[in-house]
């Protein structure tokens, strides 16, 4: 039983280590593909906005309505 518990802990530990190692080398698309000649806007966490429910409402005109990108604004490069 002890070997099993240690094995589970080791699997989780190695998985977490793998997560940090892999994500350290990853970039968002808007970071990876932005160049001095091409600006890629940041879509935010969700392309359809945080209030999107699957039922588009035409009456919702608030700032965070569906269809509006969320997340921190990017700092576009200018050529």
């Amino acid at each position: 039983m002890r070997a099993f518990i240690v094995a589970v802990i080791a699997a989780i530990g190695l998985g977490v280590a793998a997560m940090y190692a892999l994500t350290a080398n990853q970039k968002f698309a808007y970071q990876a593909f932005a160049t001095t000649g091409a600006r890629v806007s940041e879509p935010g966490a969700n392309l359809v906005g945080e209030k999107w429910t699957g039922n588009p409402s035409t009456n919702d005109t608030s700032e965070s309505a569906h269809g509006k990108a969320t997340g921190e604004p990017s700092h576009p490069k200018r050529s």
């Binding site: 002890r2 070997a3 099993f4 240690v6 094995a7 589970v8 080791a10 699997a11």
Partner: peptide, 14 residues
């Protein structure tokens, strides 16, 4: 032995 069981179970759980 314990190391063999550890190896087996880590692989098995994954």
């Amino acid at each position: 032995n314990a190391f063999e069981r550890f190896t087996h179970w880590m692989t098995a759980v994954c």
